[in-house]
Design a protein around this nucleic acid. Structure first.
Length: 586
RNA sequence: GGGGACGUAGUUCAGUUGGUUAGAACGCCUGCCUGUCACGCAGGAGGUCGCCGGUUCGAGCCCGGUCGUCCCCGCCA
């Protein structure tokens, strides 16, 4: 980057430039004033270079350099020289610039917090001065990585024949799904646009438009509560293709993952495994399992339901579920206190308790429920559970299957965290064969994925009889227990789409108001099509080993969805409200 | 909507059972210092203990409320 201000990037200077005169420009990172000689590190996006001003060698330049302070913006010219004492910790540590000309481009207030070290800062302060926070090299590096990932994926999709097409940000509110961010229309008093939760309908319309392959790195908006991995506005790598099968999308996405991991300098796991939804729920209790460690669940309803333990009996008789898992080395690692803590932990997910069986040695077991179990039951049970001497079996039983899956899933993660079991840094898996529908809290059928997802061809005959048994051609990709992305093959037949809306309880009038334009379009020659969306922020978060999604978003929101830097959202003027014909009721 | 943690100097934190003048490190200011790289040394400035109210002879500390930040549950097709 050779510009009017600089001949070189600070972090790129090496011994091959010794003897050359260079000009660099950037921020004063850190000053070490020894009196007669001043060292400072100049920082630009590329890194740091040490600059030295010597009072004997050049008294004038030394006196100029004595003024500078942290975060001043300067332009420095001098000869690249080999250092007398090299610094092996710096990429540029073999050389330094002997300062011959210094231009102070801008002075700066002392930074509110240190840019030159990585000391923690309160989140609100950090975000209020995000431009200082982003100067920290470790933080800036995340955006360099994010940029590399994004541009690699774009280039890959370009090469695969995908076209980048923009879709509207001002669009129609859809009542299903997350809460919409609304934008009132001035021209249409009382009516609102919604910001898109995803470009779902538009990308399908693009397939109907004959585009065949579409992608976009696109902002999506959901007005729901935040989490460490959730922001109200986030970016998806959204793609859709015509004349494709589930297998095509999975293969393509595996290649995208390969590109992304490589761009981040991380070796992609050798295998990207596949689980059906049913397997995932049985073995891990969740549709987004973390496969970096074992601790697989076993379903024990049949085995333990017939024992004399009253809890297991009553749970089984009322159609409940019993699950267990084996903790290697548990009888030493899981103290009484730890088990009590874990019991409290699982109670938070709606179950009443946690049973344990320590296998102290080959045939010595220790468990409060042992007395309810038949003679000679434990050794064979332990074999079935892969419970070796020294291991522990943990068991949860409840009438609510969901509570058992939930609590066992969270227990599995908690155990892995406490015992540091995740030895593989990354584990990717596909989860396929999702159910097409699930029941909401009132018992009504709702779409698991979204209402445009194609039913599994083998299950279409079940639509009218037992819809909850219908599988969808829907697939999620899961990285370390986090859902990274998901998609489906869509319905391209308007009659089937109509039938599905009907099963979801939509009347013809509902369909017409909400999706009329879409159902219309389906009838004009829709190709078979399908696609997927990858959460780019989450992907970058995981590939940069960040603790929060905020670290890979340049200007993120706080947990209450506000921005300390701009103070958004903020009150608007009476005249703005008047233009929109809005009256506040607060 | 709910549960939990936190809020003290510019920054990060300590602050004992409620008791005289609230401390440390880094940063900042002044001076000294020619090979540092977290430079070093000496000195100095810097506080509405988030805010409001209460209890008390007395509150950074106890109680209530409120605001802010984080984590989680609900929510996120």
């Amino acid at each position: 980057m050779n510009t009017g201000y600089k001949t070189h990037q600070a972090g790129t200077l090496r011994t091959d430039l010794i003897g050359q005169t260079v000009t660099v420009a950037g921020w004063v990172h850190r000053v070490r004033d020894l009196g007669g000689v001043i060292f400072f590190d100049l920082r630009d996006r590329s890194g740091l270079i040490q600059i030295v001003a010597d009072s004997v060698h050049n008294a004038n330049i030394h006196s100029q350099a004595s003024r500078i302070k942290s975060e001043w913006v300067v332009k420095a010219t001098g000869i690249v020289s080999e250092r007398a004492s090299k610094n092996p910790d710096m990429p540029t540590g073999d050389v330094e610039i002997i300062l011959s000309e210094l231009v102070i481009l801008n002075e700066a207030l002392p930074p509110v917090f240190s840019v030159s070290d990585q000391s923690p800062v309160d989140e609100a302060t950090k975000l209020k001065y995000r431009y200082l926070d982003l100067r920290r090299p470790e933080n800036a590096q995340k955006f360099i990585t994010r940029h590399r990932i994004t541009s690699r994926i774009r280039r890959f999709l370009d090469n695969q024949g995908f076209m980048d097409i923009e879709t509207p940000m001002l669009t129609k509110s859809t009542p299903e799904g997350a809460r919409d961010y609304l934008v009132p229309s001035r021209v249409h008093p009382g009516k609102c646009f919604a910001l898109p939760q995803s470009p779902q309908l538009f990308k399908q319309l693009l397939m109907m438009s004959g585009i065949e392959r579409y992608y976009q790195c696109v902002k999506c908006f959901r007005d729901e509560d935040l989490r460490a991995d959730r922001q109200p506005e986030f970016t998806q790598i959204d793609l859709e293709a015509s004349f494709v099968t589930q297998e095509d999308i999975i293969t393509l996405t595996n290649d995208i993952m390969s590109e992304a991991f490589e761009a981040a300098g991380i070796t992609l796991p050798e295998t990207i495994s596949r689980l059906t939804y049913k397997e995932a729920m049985t073995r891990y209790g969740t549709d987004a399992p973390d496969l970096r460690f074992g601790l697989e669940h076993h379903i024990l309803t049949d085995i333990l339901g017939k024992t004399d333990f009253a809890v297991f009996q009553s749970v089984t008789e009322s159609g409940g579920l019993i699950k267990g898992l084996t903790v290697p080395g548990g009888s030493t690692v899981l103290s009484r206190k730890t088990i009590d803590e874990l019991t409290e932990f699982v109670k938070g997910f709606g179950v009443k308790g946690l049973a344990y069986i320590h296998r102290r040695s080959e045939d010595e077991f220790n468990s409060p429920i042992a007395k309810f179990l038949p003679d000679q039951f434990l050794p064979s049970f332990a074999e079935k559970m892969n419970c070796a001497p020294g291991d522990t079996i943990l068991i949860i039983a409840d009438t609510s299957h969901k509570a058992v899956h939930d609590s066992m899933s969270k227990l599995r993660l908690e155990l892995a965290r406490r015992l540091d079991l995740a030895k593989t840094p990354y584990a990717l898996t596909w989860v396929i064969d999702f159910p097409l529908f699930e029941r909401d809290s009132e018992g009504n059928l709702t779409s698991t994925h979204h209402p445009f997802t194609s039913p599994h061809p083998e299950d279409i005959h079940l639509l009218s009889t037992t819809p909850e048994h219908v599988r969808a051609v829907a697939y999620d990709i899961v990285l370390n227990g986090t859902e990274l992305g998901g998609g489906s093959i869509r319905i391209h037949d308007s009659k089937l789409q109509h039938q599905l809306f009907g099963i979801l309880g939509l009347t013809d009038a509902d369909i017409d108001t909400k999706f009329g334009f879409f159902v219309d379009a389906l009838q004009y020659g829709t190709p078979p099509h399908g696609g997927l969306a990858i959460g780019l922020d989450r992907l970058c978060m995981m590939l940069t080993r960040s603790k929060s999604i905020r670290e890979v978003i340049a200007f993120p929101k706080t947990q209450n969805a506000s921005c300390p830097l701009t103070d958004a959202p903020s009150a608007v003027s009476a005249s703005q409200l008047k233009d929109l014909r809005l009256k506040l009721d607060i």
